[in-house]
Design a binder for these strands. Structure first.
Length: 584
RNA sequence: CGGGUAGUAGCGCAGGGGCUAGCGCACUUGGUUCGGGACCAAGGGGUCGGUGGUUCAAAUCCACUCUGCCCGACCA
């Protein structure tokens, strides 16, 4: 590619709103261009990188037996009504009507579409297992896109789907994907960890998320350095110590102005762990057959020294979504915000009690009367409810596996794998006949990687004060040929030679000053830079500089292509040698 | 969806009722320079986000509206 003819140009200054380095450089180097909130075009350099990432993904999917297909972005709404997600997913699912008024959706994932195909293909256990994938556009109308390609509305995703006859089959392909994902990130050069995760709108039971740890991440990951336990905070468990003691008689006491746990603990001169905190949410419960929606108050109780994790609470209550409750909704059930407990409450609401509160004795809790609390309240004796783990794991809490203190880190989700089970196959009647003639639902799994987000994370990981320095496996070109010579003929010849040797070359043939060319080369960050200068050329030499290390070598022009191929192989080896097989 | 902030040339910004709307970079032409964002000279480019209003006069004041960004709610 000749830079004199390149569609995109570099920018000297960062466009307004590029707050992270990676995003800024992707914009300035001309990899991407914003079209609207959360909507980006890929320019030639960004598209090249994206294709490289896609090809790595493709190779690894093929390697574990994946068959590439392509499904439509536009799906009939009826299909999504079958799975129930037409109703259970809110505005994030973009809907429209076609010319005859049929409900249509822009697919945000493809469980429905693939299950529809599979139910037509799969009749016998002999057809299983099956594993397909696609690399395709998704649209999710995110309420708040941000940080460039990190969180967007339209994006390219590799999504894969497996169909098995039993759990053992699913677990095998799940483990294959688990390994393949690490190989993909390793081959892209992106550090990654796998964490146990929530299943969210996908449904199913077992799931892992792959995270790139970064301060700009929006997910919080709980990590145990000691035993390797890792989980998204949404589901991270902690070892809880219960304050067991002899039950004492309940007693109402005056606690004027003690509305918060801190106030209360200070007023009574007790630790927060001797109190019980109430958190009120309203859950939306959607009937996914009819789309009918019902709101219900959820009262969550947890020991005063802990916080409620909303995702856990949502699961425990079986709600589709949660929002904070309004004061009237709480008082309608006989509870008084600031002085609330389940004791003496009435009306239709769901009570979820964290283990910390349920298994500790003699806690101070609200008396549902302005200015009063009960001391020595005990679960079961004084109030009832569903016991669940709804505690939010924080740095310093104890590891559920080994009991050592946990750490909290920020991360960006770069992929996920789900054991779906039969959620979609049952809802959509995707069954097979086993040896005994019995119809059974296929056991499904799904596996996703956001391609653009991966590029964004790579840009975040690989940059310095001069620009990007993507690894050679994902950089748009292998070699940047910078010509500083007056007589372009020799440069043209070298360019041709390199191309003929099968090397991917970005050729700066522009009539620009050396400084401009070097600055642009650093900004775009192609791994190997060849500089053609008048002086060294007279001696038959050219300079080769690595973007990653700054290391410079001088080569004879006569065997340049051969030497460059060796350099490329070395750069590739730097990445490929770091591929580590990681098993589930 | 709530709070904040901003829309003026490709990018970054200034101007804040008055005559041809500026600056830096970028762009065009000519010349000099030529290994780390060169210099000189001459040029080209803008419905001042949109609509409506106030006024003799609006980029500037007012109302509404659209869009971007940040924080939160939210989210794979």
């Amino acid at each position: 590619m000749r830079m004199s003819n390149m569609f995109s140009r570099t920018l000297r200054e960062a466009p307004n709103g590029a707050e992270s380095k990676g995003y800024e450089y992707l914009l300035r180097a001309g990899f991407i261009k914003q079209l609207g909130a959360g909507i980006f075009s890929l320019l030639p350099l960004g598209f090249k990188s994206t294709k490289k990432i896609e090809n790595i993904v493709r190779q690894e999917m093929d390697r574990i037996g994946g068959q590439e297909i392509l499904m439509p972005v536009v799906n009939p709404g009826d299909l999504w009504k079958e799975s129930g997600r037409y109703y259970s997913i809110d505005k994030e699912l973009a809907r429209f009507k076609d010319r005859v008024g049929r409900d249509m959706v822009l697919a945000m994932t493809h469980e429905e579409a693939v299950t529809d195909i599979a139910r037509g293909e799969i009749d016998s256990y002999k057809r299983l297992p099956l594993f397909v994938y696609q690399i395709q556009t998704k649209f999710r109308d995110d309420p708040r896109p941000r940080a460039g390609l990190i969180r967007v509305r339209e994006f390219t995703m590799k999504d894969a789907y497996s169909f098995d006859r039993d759990q053992a089959g699913l677990e095998k392909i799940y483990a294959d994907n688990y390994r393949a994902y690490f190989r993909i990130y390793d081959r892209c050069g992106l550090p990654s960890i796998a964490v146990s995760s929530d299943t969210g709108m996908m449904g199913g039971k077992v799931a892992h998320e792959y995270m790139y740890l970064s301060p700009i991440g929006e997910d919080t990951i709980i990590i145990c350095d000691e035993c390797g336990y890792t989980a998204n905070r949404q589901i991270a468990e902690i070892r809880k110590e219960y304050l067991k003691e002899e039950e004492k008689p309940i007693e109402k006491i005056a606690t004027p102005h003690a509305k918060t746990i801190d106030d209360l603990a200070e007023f009574l001169d007790i630790p927060a762990s001797k109190t019980c905190k109430a958190v009120f949410m309203v859950g939306s419960f959607i009937n996914d057959r009819t789309g009918e929606e019902e709101d219900k108050l959820i009262a969550a109780f947890i020991r005063g020294d802990m916080e409620v994790e909303e995702a856990k609470l949502q699961h425990a209550a079986g709600a589709n979504s949660l929002r904070p409750a309004h004061e009237e909704e709480i008082t309608a059930c006989g509870m008084v915000p600031g002085f609330a407990s389940a004791i003496g409450a009435k009306g239709d609401f769901i009570t979820i009690v964290d283990e910390s509160a349920a298994y500790s004795n003699n806690l101070v809790a609200g008396a549902n009367e302005e200015g009063y609390h009960y001391i020595n309240t005990n679960f079961k004796r004084d109030y009832d409810g569903t016991v669940a783990d709804i505690a939010s794991a924080r740095e310093g809490h104890l590891c559920p596996k080994c009991g050592k203190p946990l750490k909290a880190r920020k991360g960006i989700e770069i992929g996920n794998i789900f054991q779906l089970g039969t959620k979609y196959s049952e809802a959509m009647n995707c069954t097979f006949q086993d040896e005994t003639g019995v119809q059974k639902p296929c056991i499904m799994g799904c596996y996703g990687i956001g391609i653009g987000r991966l590029l964004a994370c790579l840009a975040e990981e690989y940059n310095d004060e001069d620009g990007l320095k993507l690894p050679i496996t994902v950089a748009p070109y292998e070699v940047h040929l910078v010509s500083l010579v007056k007589d372009q003929e020799i440069a043209e010849k070298i360019y041709e030679d390199l191309l003929n040797s099968g090397i991917e070359v970005l050729y700066d043939d522009r009539k620009e000053s050396a400084g401009v060319k070097f600055a642009d080369a650093d900004l775009i960050g192609i791994p190997i830079r060849i500089t053609l200068g008048n002086r060294s050329l007279k001696e038959g030499k050219v300079e080769v500089k690595l973007r990653s290390t700054g290391e410079t070598t001088s080569y004879d022009i006569s065997d340049l292509a051969k030497e460059i191929k060796a350099e490329i192989a070395k750069e590739r080896a730097k990445i490929e040698d770091n591929i580590v097989e990681k098993n589930l």
